[in-house]
Amino acid sequence: MPLDKSVLERNFPEFDFRVERGKIREYALVLGLNDPVHTDLEAARAAGFEDLLAPPTFVRQFWHENPENDPMPHLGYDPKRRLHGEQEFEYHKPLVAGMNLKGRNAIVSTREKEGRRGGMMTFVVIETRFVDETGELVQVARRTLIETAAPPKEA
């Protein structure tokens, strides 16, 4: 299935969420992050953070919480051929528990390329910008979603 181009015309609404201590602890523990700044408030404060520090890939959970806010389910990709190809994070200020963030998703680039065994591969980059209550940029996430080429039809 080629990219559903109507998704490029669409605006995706801003969403908001509060960064919670329990969710930070859960995320840090499953990855085995052993720096106590993620799990122990005193350690976080001693290290100069206002509250528990979110692990570097923590915002991943907020990309597609709600399908209305996220282009991903609207790309028209075949779920069996969809890959998360690349991921990028830019960090602008520390993300700590108690912050109220706003996020917004937007498609920032698309391209197509011929697959090695024929058919077209599609690449879409979705950028998510997260700002705090004062509107200051906290993090930017960019995910590259690939639809691999359809296998050639059997004769």
Binding site: L31, G32, D35, F49, L53, P56, F89, E90, Y91, P94
Partner: peptide, 21 residues
């Protein structure tokens, strides 16, 4: 996430500026 931890154990928690894979 493991690579994020790797950056953290090497350069310190909160030192991250950019991560791309």
């Amino acid at each position: 996430g493991f690579l994020g931890q790797f950056v953290e154990t090497t350069f310190g928690a909160g030192s991250y500026k950019r991560l791309e894979v």
